[in-house]
Design a protein around this nucleic acid. Structure first.
Length: 290
DNA sequence: CAGCAGTGTGCGA
DNA sequence: TCGCACACTGCTG
């Protein structure tokens, strides 16, 4: 299959904003001590300051300065406050993401049986496509049981992202079908189209332990965050926080299963499979929507 | 502050 | 089958 060529036709100008934004975020976070001015950033990117300000603010709903505020340690700690956090049990019984997520992406989930998991995707047809997103090119993978994969790629890295995802279920049949995946992408990244009445169907393909961790993530509302150790407690294995970290890192449906809302206990962002800058970008973007 | 144990999983030897 | 590395954390000196 020819992954690289298939992308071109899908990219709209909107997708390129993220490249600018990513550079700004990188510059801001690398030198946040120096509080780089808009001027300095603009010079670095070779763009007029007003233009830069405009693109960034349109993207984030926040000025670069406010954005920086939103990804500081202090703010992360505020996200970790537990009040208003929905209880795990109630949410699971309802089969929805819970009553506290009025402004969040609503989701129903179905998980693979252990036997299916061992088959590593055998007998499964996965349709995939690349689409622009606020966080760069997104790789969307769907099955007839729902959304199964969501990955990101920096420019030129599309093939690597695909390999990363396809390697998780090596026995599945992969069919490029961006017509089928486009409507998922459009909906996932447009908060105006998140609806409790019509939840997004997702299909969690993973080990039992992983699925429990991912389900716990689904109960973290937009504008909130949790920690690896708190998830460990929630799934009844309070000492398994490290294992939780590994499972969070294997989350196949980034963004929809909000693994970016898992932080270190100190409020550190720790890591992100698709790059720490992207984790910052998503958290900052969410701060603009919350 | 460094070092280490405890955890589930996947991967290569 | 075994050993190791992980997007971790709390306890020990």
């Amino acid at each position: 299959m020819n992954v690289a060529t298939s992308i071109q036709t899908d990219i709209t100008p909107k997708g390129t904003d993220y490249d600018t934004v990513r550079c700004v975020i990188e510059a801001l976070t690398e030198n946040y001590r120096d509080q780089p001015s808009l001027e300095a950033l603009a010079r670095r990117l070779g763009q007029p300051p007003t233009q830069l300000q405009k693109v960034f603010t349109r993207w984030a709903g926040l000025s670069p300065k406010a954005f920086l505020q939103a990804v500081t340690l202090d703010h992360a700690k505020r996200l970790l406050r537990q009040e208003d956090m929905p209880l795990l049990e109630t949410s699971i019984e309802v089969g929805l993401s819970g009553p506290g997520r009025l402004h969040d992406l609503f989701v129903t989930h179905e998980a693979m049986s252990p036997g299916e998991w061992k088959a590593r995707g055998a007998g499964l047809t996965i349709r995939y496509g690349f689409h622009p997103s606020p966080f760069g090119t997104a790789l969307v993978m769907v099955t007839d049981r729902g959304l199964a994969g969501l990955a990101f790629a920096d420019p030129g890295e599309e093939r690597a992202s695909f390999e990363d995802m396809a390697g998780r279920w090596p026995n599945a049949l992969y069919v490029e079908d961006s017509a089928a995946t486009a409507r998922y992408a459009a909906r996932i990244f447009d908060p105006d189209r998140w609806s409790a009445e019509e939840p997004l169907r997702i299909f969690l393909i993973g080990s039992d332990f992983q699925v429990r961790v991912w389900q716990a993530l689904l109960h973290v509302p937009l504008g909130k965050a949790t920690t690896y150790s708190r998830i460990a407690e929630e799934i009844g294995q309070p000492t398994a926080s490290r294992a939780v970290g590994a499972a969070v890192g294997r989350n196949p449906i980034s963004f929809v299963v909000p693994c970016h809302r898992a932080l270190g206990k100190s409020g550190d962002l720790t890591g992100y499979h698709w790059g720490l800058t992207r984790k910052r970008a998503i958290l900052g973007w969410e701060a603009g929507k919350a």
